[in-house]
Amino acid sequence: MSDQITTKNTQVSTELAKWTIPIRKWAIWQDGVDQHTTPDVSFIDANSRRKLSRFAKMALKVAHDCSDDVPQAHFVFASQHGDIVRTTEMLFDLARQEELSPTVFSMSVLNACAGMYSIAKRDHSPSIAISAGASSFGYGLLEGAFHHLNHPDTPVIYVYVDETPPSIYGDTARMLTSAHAIGVLIADHATVNVSCQMTARASDADSTTAQSVSFMDGLLNHHNAHWEGEGMRWDWTYSER
């Protein structure tokens, strides 16, 4: 028993990795206080736009806003819950033995937003969609950073979106209190450098906020940010160029 307590209180830290991400442009979209709005994505043609959920519109809005009009970009999409509002509605439909909407079904997959962006921009570059639990934001950003490291001439658009899960799921750890989306253009001619460090640690001091929210606060307020959870500490250090 005493051994377990000792192990818990001993903060064993092992630096796993450290890398720097050049950010040329970024965009954030979030719900206002007590305000539930849908972003304007009029840059997408009407026949595609009508199929988009609020979740998808958030994703495409920040992707467009951070893209700096680069003609081609590798697209990385990440989300912890995906389009959980629509998938939950689909589950209710199934429970009522109702036929699913083909449109809603086709747009509920995790890579739907990447696909819609590719169609809207006529950009046939590869894309990837990632979900990795509470650390989804960090691992998505890592994926984007390493793609850029291996292909320095190719810009990477990284988009992260999450919405508050419907109340039927009950309270979950590090509950999101509002919907938000983050878009980051990882490319040369950077305006901000973000240095990221991952440290493995045995600690019970898990962050109470969502990982993406920690990062977003740092970006918005120009201060360093960190997040702890799932046995890992993530540190993001910002430096203007």
Partner: peptide, 8 residues
Amino acid sequence: IDALEIGV
């Protein structure tokens, strides 16, 4: 997809 939707 619209065709499927109309079918439903």
